[in-house]
Computed example of a mutant assay.
Amino acid sequence: MQPIISQIDYEIRLVQHLLSNRFLRTENGKLLTARSISDDTVGFETEDSLCREWLLSIYPSYHFYDGFETLDLCHQYIQSTNYDNELFRIVQFHGQFFAVVYENARHQQVIGRETSYFTKNNLFLCAKRPPSNLMTKDRNKLPPIPLIYYELHAFDPALKIYQLHKETHVYQEVPILEAIEYAVLLGITFKDIWYLCDSPHAIAHNRALLNLYFNQGHNLTLFGKYSNAIAINPFQRLVHLQKGRIEHFQMDVDNPRSQQRLVPYREVRRLHEQMRTRPIQFDTSLQPI
């Protein structure tokens, strides 16, 4: 799947949308993020250049994969699984359909035509299909930060979400705000961007950017530093270590007090095939890579 909108048109649409819902604001001719984004999450209030840098980084941070061609094919996949069909929502994006489970941070699945994501042991893993024996975790679902939904909306304002009707057993469209976390989770699987964490300046700079997407208590760039990483990709939950090594890390998204952890060495090779990566090109500036 390729974006059908140019980067310039995308950025115009995104900024207009973010201004209309007050995620962005203007002050003395400069762009700033809103002080309060969602619950305890606060955007950076800073100079115009950092805000513009962030906006310019969004379009190339998305790397799409294909969904099912029709809603019926997506529904057929859901019926073939061992999971309760009512756990799933179907997200329609760019005319394709993705099966999504977002029970809580410990039990998530996103299934496309040939690519799927799932959570297991605080890892975010990629495979052709999720395992059939993922455990359902009894845990509250916290409201997501909606920014990634806004970013997806700028790619496709016609994005829709469907839920299985209990009586008719037919998928029916539901209001976005009632199921926005499913669109956010789908967007996370598309979003693939690296942030430098190899210097004090890079750590502070990129921490400000990541605070737009994650609770500030996670301190992802500091975790990268203490892991001796060059860069961190928190959306795919990967770190780029010395000598070109890329490894998974464990993260409890809903609990900023829980420390991120590198995968034990004995697990690294076993999990290496369960990541979706592209060649990394480092930028000498402090922009995301």
Rank of each mutant, 00 (worst) to 15 (best):
I5S: 04
Q16T: 05
Q16D: 01
H17C: 05
L19F: 13
L24S: 02
L24R: 02
S38E: 05
D40S: 14
E47M: 15
D48S: 15
S49R: 15
L55F: 14
S61M: 03
S61H: 07
Y62F: 15
Y65R: 00
D66Y: 08
D66E: 15
T70W: 10
D72N: 11
Q76V: 11
S80N: 04
T81P: 03
N82R: 14
D84P: 05
N85W: 07
L87N: 04
G95P: 07
V100E: 00
V101W: 00
N104G: 08
V110W: 00
E114Y: 10
T115N: 14
S116K: 06
F118P: 01
N122L: 07
N122W: 04
F124N: 02
A127Y: 03
R129I: 06
N133E: 10
M135P: 07
D138K: 11
I145L: 12
P146Q: 08
I148P: 07
K166I: 09
Y171F: 12
V174K: 04
P175M: 08
P175E: 09
E178F: 11
E178I: 05
E178G: 06
A179K: 01
A179G: 06
A179D: 13
I180M: 10
E181R: 11
Y182H: 08
G187T: 02
F190Q: 02
I193K: 11
A202W: 01
I203R: 03
A204T: 15
N206P: 01
L209G: 03
L212D: 00
L220F: 10
I230N: 03
F235R: 09
H240R: 15
P256K: 04
S258L: 13
S258Q: 14
L262K: 11
V263A: 03
R269N: 15
R269S: 15
L271V: 06
E273W: 12
R276T: 02
F282H: 14
T284F: 11
S285E: 07
S285P: 09
